[in-house]
């Protein structure tokens, strides 16, 4: 992690996505991730990926998501590069490779290359959705909503989000202090760096345990576990939430239907299919409508007060 990275954790901002009811946000994020995972058609992948990136911008969360997007890009690139090297299927050979014993042909084909790129793009999109969800969906609101199902698991998740930045900051501080003390944490070989970092990681782990004990004590002192819990009034469901829930649910239904009917796939092999001909029109139409609607809601939320007050 670089020094200037903003940690990818929830911070309230005055945007429509941050203001969504947790149920609406959850359904929207699940439907986006499902679209990226289920629909193999490159057109659908492109629309989903572009839509999610546009939403990250609309949520003013580029800074927070950057670190995860960078990691996602590297992973996607790896998938795109490795796939054509190990997958020799496809009719259009771009590079002839040697014949390896056991392995067989090592040719690089256009189909395998595009299949790798599409797979990488889908993976990137799923991670981008996760990044957007982690920075815009309040763990406390989620805890409120899910507390009736499993309060303790939701509390653990909220605590993890709350303590993650503290741990990262402590790790950075500890590294700086050890550097200033003269520990050779930088330079040298990889193994010597790992060895130099080892006591630091152990100490960080011990610090986390100490902090966990302190938090448990503080929770005890504030009545945790006394009996039946009350609840601060949760968020109201508003027209914008209903709109998002409606479109996201429809998209989810369309995705399930497409998957069940076998229309979600796309023929990459042996020869590339035509993305326009292979489209499942219903799910594509919903996908193509859902993102512009979401982006319109986000944009109008920022600009038109009249509209905002009614949404």
């Amino acid at each position: 992690m670089r020094e200037d990275d903003v940690l990818p954790v929830y911070r309230y901002k005055d945007t429509l996505i941050h203001g969504l009811h947790p149920l609406a946000a959850l359904i929207a994020f699940v439907s986006m991730a499902a679209a990226a995972l289920v629909l193999e058609n490159p057109l659908c992948t492109a629309i989903t990926g572009a839509g999610v990136l546009a939403l990250i911008f609309q949520a003013d969360s580029w800074g927070e998501c950057r670190i995860l997007l960078r990691a996602a890009f590297l992973v996607a690139l790896m998938v795109a590069v490795i796939n054509p090297l190990v997958n020799g299927q496809g009719e259009h050979i771009l590079v002839y490779g040697p014949h390896l014993p056991v392995w067989g042909e090592t040719n690089i084909t256009l189909e395998a290359l595009l299949y790798g790129l599409a797979g990488g793009a889908r993976l990137f999109t799923v991670i981008a959705v996760f990044a957007l969800a982690s920075v815009t969906l309040s763990p406390d609101d989620l805890l409120d909503m899910l507390s009736r199902l499993s309060f303790r698991s939701s509390l653990s998740a909220a605590l993890a989000v709350r303590l993650y930045p503290s741990m990262v900051l402590e790790a950075r501080e500890m590294r700086d202090v050890q550097l200033a003390r003269g520990e050779p944490l930088k330079g040298g070989g990889r193994w010597s760096r790992v060895r130099a970092h080892m006591p630091l990681w152990l100490s960080l782990f011990q610090g986390s345990l100490d902090r966990a004990a302190s938090i448990a004590e503080s929770m005890s002192a504030r009545g945790f576990g006394a009996g039946r819990r009350g609840r601060l009034n949760g968020r109201h469901v508003r027209p914008r939430d209903l709109t998002v829930i409606l479109f996201s649910s429809m998209l989810l239904c369309a995705l399930v239907t497409a998957a069940l009917k076998g229309k979600a796939g796309f023929p990459f092999f042996p020869a590339l299919g035509n993305p326009l001909r292979e489209l499942d029109l219903f799910s594509f139409a919903l996908l193509a409508a859902a993102f512009p609607i979401m982006l319109f809601l986000c944009g109008s939320w920022k600009r038109w007060h009249w509209w905002r007050s009614r949404m």
Binding site: S138, D140, L155, R211, S214, S218
Partner: peptide, 11 residues
């Protein structure tokens, strides 16, 4: 720092 469990002040 070691006493807080929620992510926002209100909560």
């Amino acid at each position: 720092e070691d006493q807080l469990v929620s992510t926002t002040v209100e909560k």
